[in-house]
């Protein structure tokens, strides 16, 4: 089960700052879209709109054809700062969503078992977040998002704080889960390699005002492997994205 996301002429203003301007984009059901761009170009803003944590000043965001009016468990969010509830155990964190959905104890248990196994945290089910490493915390946050069974995953630089090795491992894990369930994903990152490796399409954003600059198709086969990561095709796409991000046209005159 998956859903599409439609940005229709979306603008967001914060007092005199245009965080997002005339943003039009459509994420197809089951598509994996990554978003890159300089700091402050409105990536998190765009994601918060889909999550329902923010309302646009103009235009609208539709999920499965319905205008987003607030947050809901159909859209799972994974924050850069993990945002685990520190007073709950790893398992209780994962069961937070199912609990709100009114699932019984046994159902919750089955769900948390399943997703903790998926992210390799079964042995830490009863631990508190404070004893986890950064990578483990992020895996717990991923399990928590999956456990609410969302149709869409929204990820805001989820691997930004992790070391390169953990990062690559989590990327592969994320891709393999995605290939089996085909949830639509909007994934924000600063890392051009990561953006290309994960995506069906890469959205390159520009700053001041925050806007869409370019959409780059990644027509590399799945499953993505190390060979693909090191292939000339990958390098070519990576270079295009790199150029789009780091050699942006001079800022639009209106800003």
């Amino acid at each position: 089960m998956s859903a599409d996301i439609h940005f229709r002429g979306v603008s967001v203003r914060f007092s005199d700052l245009q965080a997002l301007k005339d943003f039009d984009f459509h994420i197809r059901p089951g598509e994996f879209v990554t978003m890159v761009g300089p700091s402050g170009c409105g990536k998190s803003t765009a994601m918060n709109l889909v999550a329902g944590l923010l309302q646009p000043s103009a235009g609208e965001v539709l999920v499965s054809g319905r205008t987003v009016r607030g947050p809901g468990p159909d859209r799972g969010v994974i924050f850069q700062q993990y945002a685990l509830f520190p007073w709950l155990s790893v398992r209780e964190n994962v069961e937070f969503g199912p609990r709100l959905a009114g699932k019984s104890r046994a159902e919750r248990r089955a769900i948390s078992d399943r997703y903790l196994r998926l992210v390799g945290l079964s042995d830490f089910a009863d631990a508190l977040p404070k004893v986890l490493s950064g990578g483990m915390k992020q895996r717990c946050a991923i399990a928590r998002a999956y456990a609410a069974d969302p149709q869409i995953l929204l990820m805001d630089e989820p691997f930004g704080a992790l070391d390169a090795l953990t990062r690559i491992r989590l990327q592969d894990q994320l891709l393999s889960t995605w290939s089996s369930d085909r949830r639509s994903v909007l994934f924000i990152t600063h890392d051009v390699d990561e953006a290309v490796y994960l995506a069906n399409r890469v959205v390159v954003m520009g700053a001041r005002p925050g806007r869409l600059l370019e959409v780059i198709d990644v027509d590399l086969p799945h499953p993505r492997t190390e060979e693909i990561r090191l292939s000339p095709d990958f390098a070519a796409i990576r270079n295009r994205v790199w150029h789009a991000v780091y050699h942006q046209p001079s800022q639009a005159g209106a800003a």
Partner: peptide, 9 residues
């Protein structure tokens, strides 16, 4: 943390 709870419903 508040946002994390909100997006979980």
């Amino acid at each position: 943390l508040i946002n994390a709870a909100r997006v979980l419903g």
